[in-house]
């Protein structure tokens, strides 16, 4: 706008045109201002609290810094990252995190799909189903972790009695402890997965299934050839959300095993380094690595998602 005002004295017709343009930009400017006035507070609240800690974490991760010894703080550049990435323990915890993620998300996908199918098809008990399925979703993760930890416990639980396992100690070995964590995690989050899948399922026109049935397709063929290809988008969204979530697993590990029997995950490592051991530099580096891994997973999903969708579109056209 400064260019229009500083321009050489304009002739009358041009004047009106530029005046109109000024009015127009005035209006859009007002809309812009209003937009930022409305969205600004939320934006600031989101950035202020997360922006600084993220930058701070990246900065601190370059130092050898122990909270109890502030004067001994020294700049080590990428030293912390080298320490972590060359440590076998980190890779073990990375492995545990990956195992939990892969196992829970794949079981949840299959189970969630079954749940969604039932919710989609059942004519009765619909409200009861919806209420029942929202209970695990809404329940506090710590509470569900306790419920499962006590259920599997050989002192308090009923699981051993139910399956005749005697005194078997579920939390005494890595694999059985991880199993209980996965069960708790799956129970709590499958409902969310199934609701996302249900939304995708509801978008498939009934005619498609009817036509397949008329053509003599079996139930399995209908699922494989009609239902699954038509809800790819919903499946990808559900998988993305849950994978990112599962990779950051913390609450249930903290409550159920406290990291014992080599069940520590990456989030737990970051917590333990910073809060319990007050190794702020090292802990921050673990946090940064975790964040980078999560972003990588998200990017990978979006890449696969995009090529997948464009391929789908290509086939259809």
């Amino acid at each position: 706008m400064s260019t229009t005002t500083s321009a050489a004295p304009p002739r009358p017709p041009k004047e009106t045109r530029s005046a109109r343009r000024v009015r127009l930009t005035d209006r859009t400017r007002k809309e812009r201002n209003l937009g930022w006035m409305l969205a600004g507070p939320a934006f600031i609240a989101m950035v202020a609290v997360t922006g600084y800690p993220i930058l701070n974490a990246i900065w601190l991760s370059l130092f050898d810094f122990r909270l109890t010894d502030p004067s001994g703080r020294s700049f080590v550049f990428l030293g912390n990252y080298v320490t972590i990435l060359t440590d076998g323990l980190f890779w073990k915890q990375f492995g545990v995190t990956v195992i939990i993620t892969v196992v829970t998300v794949s079981v949840e996908l299959v189970l969630g799909f079954a749940l969604a199918m039932v919710m989609h098809r059942a004519l009765y008990l619909r409200t009861a189903l919806r209420v029942a399925i929202l209970v695990p979703y809404g329940i506090i993760t710590v509470v569900s972790s306790y419920a499962w930890a006590y259920a599997f416990s050989n002192t308090y639980g009923f699981v051993n009695g139910l399956f005749g396992l005697g005194d078997f100690d579920w939390f005494g070995g890595t694999w059985s402890a991880l199993f209980t964590v996965c069960v708790a995690e799956i129970w709590k989050t499958t409902p969310f997965m199934s609701l996302l899948l249900l939304a995708g399922l509801a978008q498939i026109p009934d005619d498609y299934l009817e036509a397949a049935k008329v053509d003599g397709a079996t139930a399995w063929q209908r699922v494989k050839r009609v239902i699954l290809p038509n809800m790819k988008a919903a499946i990808m969204v559900a998988l993305l959300f849950r994978t990112l979530d599962a990779f950051r697993i913390f609450d249930s590990v903290f409550i159920m095993t406290a990291g014992a029997q080599s069940t520590e995950t990456l989030s737990f490592l970051a917590y333990r380094q910073t809060i319990s051991r007050v190794m702020v530099g090292l802990g921050s580096a673990v946090s940064v690595i975790l964040a980078i891994l999560v972003v990588l997973i998200a990017v990978m999903f979006v890449k696969v998602f995009k090529t997948d969708l464009s391929q789908q579109r290509g086939v259809k056209k």
């Binding site: 930022w36 934006f43 600084y52 800690p53 950051r248």
Partner: peptide
Amino acid sequence: EFPGKRLVLGVALAITVFPVIAIATP
């Protein structure tokens, strides 16, 4: 319509993706 709309949505998405523990410790 305002500039930066995508930025607001992008930041919101980035926060949901970012691990809570990585914010909590700093």
